[in-house]
Design a protein around this nucleic acid. Sequence first.
DNA 1: TCATAATAGGACTAAAAGGATCCTATTACT
DNA 2: AGTAATAGGATCCTTTTAGTCCTATTATGA
Lengths: 153, 153
Amino acid sequence: MKLTREADYAVRVVVELASRPPAAIVPSRAIAEQQQIPGAFLAKVVCGLARAGLIRTLRGSGGGLQLARPAAETTLRQVVEAIEGPIRLNRCLREPGACPLQSRCQVHGVWRRVQELLLRELDAVTMAELARTPGEPRDPRTAGASAGAPAGS
Amino acid sequence: MKLTREADYAVRVVVELASRPPAAIVPSRAIAEQQQIPGAFLAKVVCGLARAGLIRTLRGSGGGLQLARPAAETTLRQVVEAIEGPIRLNRCLREPGACPLQSRCQVHGVWRRVQELLLRELDAVTMAELARTPGEPRDPRTAGASAGAPAGS
DNA sequence: TCATAATAGGACTAAAAGGATCCTATTACT
DNA sequence: AGTAATAGGATCCTTTTAGTCCTATTATGA
Ligand code: FES
Ligand code: FES
C-alpha cells in the first residue's frame, strides 16, 4: 500500500526536468545531486522512464536527459505507472477471474471505487504544476503564477 | 501501491464473521473454505487480527473466532492497518525528516492529500455494511454457529 | 582520424518483505 | 486421564525491491 522507492525517484526526476527551461538537456549526475538520488540507482530509474517514452536520453559526451513532451502533458499517474505498471489496489482488480469469489465478494466494489478515486486524483496533477516550486523560488518569473500553496508537513 | 495478500485475507475473515449472527464462534477452517483462503496461511492472518484486538480467539475443541466488537464499529481501515500497519503512501509521510528535500519537495503535498482522501474513504466503510450481501443471498446452512463441517466446495 | 573522456544502458548482486507451511500449546469432550 | 479439535507461534521458501557494477555509445579534441 505504498509507493516504491523507484517510483518516488522517478517523479522527482521528471519534476526536476520540468522545472528547467523546456527541452533542456540535463546530465543525470546533476539530477542525482539536486534530488538526492543515489547516482548509480538513478540509471535504472532513467531507463524505465525512457522505455515508457516519458523522457528522451542522449548518450555520449554532452548528453543527458530531456523531457519527451511538454511538462503540462505528463501526469503524475503516467510517471508512477511507467515504473510500477498499472495501479491496481488489489490482485482481483488486476486479473479478473483470479478470485473465484468475485461475484459474491462484498469488498470488491469498495476497492474498485477507491482505486478509481485514486487514479482520478493522480491524473489531475501535471508535471507542469509540480514544477512550480511553492516555497523555494527556482525560477523568479513564475513566482506569482502558483495558486494556493499547500502547507508543508 | 497495492494491498498485501494478507490484508486482503484479513478483510475477508472479518466480513465473514460479520455476516453471521453476532458473537457467533466460527472455526477458522470453516472460514478458510468459505473464503478460499489457504488454511495454513489463515493462522497468521488470524494472529494479526487477534493481536490488534479486532477479533477474539477461543482455543481448544469447539473454539474458533469471534468478533471482538459489533461489526458496525469496525472500519475497513482498521482491518487493513491491523495487518499492514499505518497506511502511508510514501516513506516521507511515515518518517518525517527521512527526506532531506521535504521542505522544497513539490510532490509532498500531493501525496499527503491523496493519502488523506484514501484514509477517509476506508474509514467510511464499516464491516456491517460489507456483511450485507448486495445481490447474492448467502448460504442459509452456514449461517449458524459451528454445527458440523459445511458441505465442501 | 584516432584516442579519450563523458554519458546512458543494461546485467548483476544483496537485502528485505511477502507468502506459505509445519509443529506445539491449549481446550473441550468422552 | 485420554483423545480429538483448535488456535498460536516459529520457521522456511519465494518474490520483490534496492542498490552497485560493468559495458556500449557518442561527442570532443589532439
Ligand atoms: S474479489 Fe475483488 S476484493 Fe474480493
Ligand atoms: S519529501 Fe515527501 S514526497 Fe518528496
